[in-house]
Simulated assay, not measured.
Amino acid sequence: MKNIIAILFVFLAVSANAQDKKEKQKTQIVDAACGQCQFAMEGHGCELAVRIDGKSYFVDGTSIDSHGDAHASDGFCAAIRKAAVVGEIKGNRFVVSEFKLLPEEKKK
């Protein structure tokens, strides 16, 4: 019986920690584009990147081709777009758990 209570306690503690971590990750609006073509980052071909607080990070968790043709007139290689993202910076990369490309703003 003590073992069951101990296991239950550990499970609840781990679950609470995971929930706290998820709540800490808020959606933020960032610039998204091809790191090489738009943000002048060094890399090996066109790769999705985001700019957060003035610093650019290549993205893990989604790809440049998952959001349309990167080389279209409104694609990531030709334009910097806004995206709503949830994730965290790990090392020099942004690990995304949610990525939603926002509609382009109408030009006046």
Rank of each mutant, 00 (worst) to 15 (best):
D60Q: 11
K107T: 13
L102Q: 11
V14S: 02
Q25R: 15
E98Y: 08
K2Y: 07
L8Q: 11
I64K: 02
K55N: 11
N17M: 09
S63M: 06
H67Q: 02
D74T: 06
E88D: 07
G68W: 13
D69K: 13
A83Y: 02
A13D: 01
E104C: 03
Q25D: 07
F94K: 03
I80Q: 01
D53K: 10
V50Q: 04
V96F: 01
A78V: 04
F9T: 15
I64E: 01
K55F: 10
D65I: 11
C34N: 05
F9I: 15
D60V: 13
K100R: 12
M1Y: 14
Q38V: 08
E105H: 05
P103G: 03
C37T: 06
E47D: 11
E105P: 00
C77S: 09
F9D: 01
A33N: 03
K26A: 09
E47A: 12
R81D: 00
I5F: 12
E42T: 15
I4Y: 11
E88C: 01
F11M: 12
V95I: 06
V59W: 02
F76C: 01
R51V: 10
Q36V: 15
S15L: 10
K26M: 09
F39W: 14
Q38C: 04
D31S: 12
G45I: 12
G61V: 09
L101M: 13
C37P: 02
S63P: 02
N92K: 15
N3L: 05
G87H: 01
I4N: 09
G43A: 14
L8P: 00
D53Y: 08
L8C: 12
A49G: 10
I4E: 13
L101C: 06
L101Y: 06
I5W: 11
I64N: 01
A78K: 14
S15K: 14
C37Q: 08
A84W: 06
S73K: 15
R93V: 07
F76M: 00
K26G: 05
A33L: 05
G35K: 05
Q19M: 09
F94R: 03
P103E: 05
A79I: 01
A6H: 03
K21H: 12
